[in-house]
Every structure is written in structure tokens, then in C-alpha cells.
Amino acid sequence: MTSSPQSGQRAVGKLADPIGADAPLDREALEEIFDDIRTHPRYDSELNGCLNCGICTATCPSAHYYDYSPREIVQLLWTENVEGIYDAMQEKIWACAQCYTCAARCPFGNSPGGLVMVMREVAIKHGMESAKEVLRPFSRVMLKVMTTGNQLAPNMITPEHFPDWGPNISKVEAPLNILRKAIPMPTLHTQETAWAVNLKTSIELYTIWEESGVLDQLETMDENLFDVIVDIMDEKREDYADWLEEQDDDDDDD
């Protein structure tokens, strides 16, 4: 389930005909990718077979706007079409909006959305170019959540980043710090995080990233971002250690 950074180099995915003569990967590599999907702990509970009834695609928001069909994803996986699976991982799986309507409707209890998540995890494990592309606009969010424990901060939402949301983030004009302090919840008087997060809490979360292999995933995908995060968190850990020491000193004084 956790990623191995070494495997990242192999699959330099180009958008090419996966079954043609200039296929980017040989059959063995394709099967290895499929094996990672098939042995994922979620896989068996998300796929039970398929009648191609189309209820998933019928109700899929992304199917209306993209060349994407959850039914096709299920069919590819069920028939172990490793070329088709690899091809779908280049673009199609990223079209899914993760609403899970497909799973709520499937008469056989499949979860195409869950299968897409498995494929996304495997795309990351293999360092696929498609995954890197997807991740790029996410780096701000990633940095935030990795180092603070919050995905989103008030100061991330600016007309500059969201020009299509209109010129005014607030309909009452005032500096952000004042507007934030005018929220009647003391935990929300923040700009750098959505709510004030305890230092200890951020560090606990960082330990989870380390121990669950998520940091390794990130290193495969974006080494620069990985380095930045490690630096920030080393510093935070030091801060926390210092604070703990201070407490001990205080206790000693008592």
C-alpha cells in the first residue's frame, strides 16, 4: 500500500498508443501496474463483476463533460485489460469527480469511484507523469496540509488565485485580519490556517505522514515540495522540543 520511491523511475508515461509498436511500456511492466491495483486492500471490496448496465455512467457528472465512463473503468479492470488500464491512467481516471454516486447506484455493489482512487494511488506509486501533472496545481494545498494540518487557509483564497470567483472575497471591505477577528469563534481568528492548529497537533499529523508512507509518495512525485515540507517540519519539531524543555524548566522551578 505504501509507495516505494524506486519504482517511480520506470514508468515514464507518455500519451502514446499503449498497444502499438512504440508502446511506452512492455507487457510485464503493465502487468506489474495492474498487480498493484489488484492487490490493493480496497480492490476486492470495490469490484464484484459487471453487467455493463451503465447505471454508473448514467449518473456520473464527469461522464457529461469528459471522455470518461465509470463503466469503462470497471470493464477494463474486470477483464484485466492491462493496456487499457494503463491508458485510462494517463488521463481518464483524473476526470472522476469522486462523488461516489456510481457506488450508491451500482446494483452489484461495485464502487467505480473507489476503483479510480486505487488507480490514482497506483499512478502515484509509479510516478506517472499524469499524476505529477495533476499534483502540480495541488502543491499549495499539499504544503498547507502537510505542514499545518489544515487543507485550506483564508489567505489562500484571493481574487488572484480565483479570478472566476469575482473581485470581492468579502462583501464587506476590511483587512483580512479584521474580518477574521470579527468571526465569533476564537479558533478562527487566523489567516494562515483555516483554524488555529496546536503546534503539537501539526507534529502528530506529520508523524502520521511519515509512518503511513505518504511522505514517500510525495517524494516520488515532487522532490522539491518534499524538501520544503521536511525543512518546515524539522523546524516545527525543534520548536516543540524547545517548548517542552521550557516546560520542564518551569516545572523544575516550581
Binding site: 499539499m142 489544515n150 487543507q151 479558533t187 496546536n198 509512518e211
Partner: peptide, 28 residues
């Protein structure tokens, strides 16, 4: 109680980017 010792569930990130896994989600 509305307190500061809590993190996001990190599932937005997981569903959006694919970074994260069941172990990290469960631990969070």
C-alpha cells in the same frame, strides 16, 4: 467544545490528488 487540537480529515486532498492512503486516513 471548539478547540485547536484537531486536523483536517485530509480526505479532500486524498480524493483530489491521490496523495494519502487508507493507513494515513485511518490514523488521522
Amino acid at each position: 467544545l471548539d478547540e485547536t487540537d484537531q486536523t483536517s480529515c485530509t480526505a479532500w486532498n486524498y480524493h483530489g490528488s491521490g496523495i494519502g492512503n487508507i493507513v494515513s486516513l485511518a490514523a488521522v
